[in-house]
Design a protein around this nucleic acid. Structure first.
Lengths: 232, 232
DNA sequence: AAAAAAATTCATGTATACAAAATGCAGGCG
DNA sequence: CGCCTGCATTTTGTATACATGAATTTTTTT
């Protein structure tokens, strides 16, 4: 597990359980805590400088979120991420992102449309920096505007959760510069469909966007697997 | 809160936290614990005959599921269910049920098709009993077959969760005998579309099914609201 | 009598203590 | 040599204790 990077910040007025939850969640999603790794309460408690209680409560939430699996009387371990489980997530996300685009057509405000246009432009600019972090943030910002425009809280929560499941791979494919032009074009397609209030086109554009993301991620996983076999 | 109905059964080998979680969850979904009601740890602990620890862990899961809301330093209370939040849930469910129907077209096995046909028939039989519990169970069984046929674990989990959010209202509209014929017909439409592998038709049939469910539930809520104003 | 201040009560947040189950290792036995 | 048994250790599951913040009630003062 990554060294001191995992530290609780007491800065916040959040209960410790929430701090721990966020810390562990991020560690899992970024791959700092690897699938199959055991989460031992006392160990984590010492590491984060808190007692077992907030650790346990954080694990309960991670459990419900599916990021850890509980083994009876053995505690928690980081959930395995298989190709199948990623495909499952993407399949659901495709449907929900399409729904977001459709709903946005009917509900987006003019102010939000302007923000969306700006976000598209900002994303295009970001690709020029070649900085994966900057690009990823611009991408998230853009999608957040569309999702928020649906005005559906539950949908916002679900889409964000599903999107986060792929943070680990997302980075890899955003670094691939050959994809940047395509991404810009796909964003433009979604934006224009929404402005035109063309629900079918918006939904289809969103689906294509996810399709391509899926292809990138699956390519990435194939590479990872090959790496693994070499190591063994 | 409903009297002794809420009792932990130690029969199981589940950790107490899971027993408590299931107990509270059911109590909330059936309306035994009403929106806005406070969940006080010591109180629940005494009531269920356990210590605060498993209660707290159960509440953490309910929190993530959105069934309770946390107030800082005041603890948990049962989440309010507004007309808006129900509409949000139904909007997502419509998309996911449609996705289930589509996916089922391509993935359902012959054995599952047979089970689905039987479930349709069983539902029609169940309506004749006029027993809401029997009908509800037959309905759940039928939908479970379709959802399971997608082979997508994540989708199964999400759809079940969304469906459960409406347990409270579901019962009311299943009791309405005038709707039974329509429900049987809608189930038949979905079944036949799946057998014919007509993805578009299956998706549309699933959407219509939810649309009608939404209408029933919204009617129910209007009635509830009117009841409330009379009471006041 | 009303308002402000102080004290008390109560519930949560966190830590620790205790019990029971599972794991791992050592030593004995077939 | 391998396997089984039993003890020690580790780790989870549960309970309880302590501390802090919030709310309420009581008291005091105007």
């Amino acid at each position: 597990m990554g060294a001191e990077s995992m530290q609780v910040k007491v800065d916040e007025f959040l209960p410790l359980r929430d701090v721990v939850f966020n810390t562990l969640r991020k560690a899992i999603l970024t791959g700092e805590l690897k699938p199959g790794e055991r989460l031992m309460e006392l160990h984590l408690a010492n590491r984060l400088g808190v007692s077992r209680t907030p650790i346990r409560e954080a694990i309960r939430k991670l459990e419900l979120e599916g990021l850890v699996t509980m083994l009876p009387r053995r505690g928690a371990e980081v959930a395995q991420i298989t190709e199948k489980s990623l495909k499952d997530v993407l399949e659901v996300r495709r449907a929900l992102d399409a729904l977001c685009a459709e709903l946005a057509c009917g509900r987006i405000t003019e102010a939000e449309e302007a923000k969306l246009a700006a976000a598209c432009e900002k994303f295009a600019q970001a690709t020029k920096t070649k900085d994966a972090t900057v690009i990823a943030m611009a991408d998230v910002a853009l999608h957040d505007i569309i999702v928020a425009a649906t005005g559906n809280q539950r949908l916002v929560q679900l889409v964000n959760n599903l999107a986060e499941q792929m943070y680990r791979y997302r980075f890899e494919y955003i670094k691939d510069e050959s994809q940047h032009e395509r991404l810009i074009e796909e964003h433009r397609m979604i934006y224009e469909s929404i402005v035109k209030k063309d629900r079918a086109a918006a939904a289809e554009a969103a689906r294509i966007h996810i399709d391509n993301q899926e292809k990138s991620i699956m390519r990435q996983i194939q590479l990872d697997n090959r790496q693994d076999s070499i190591k063994r």
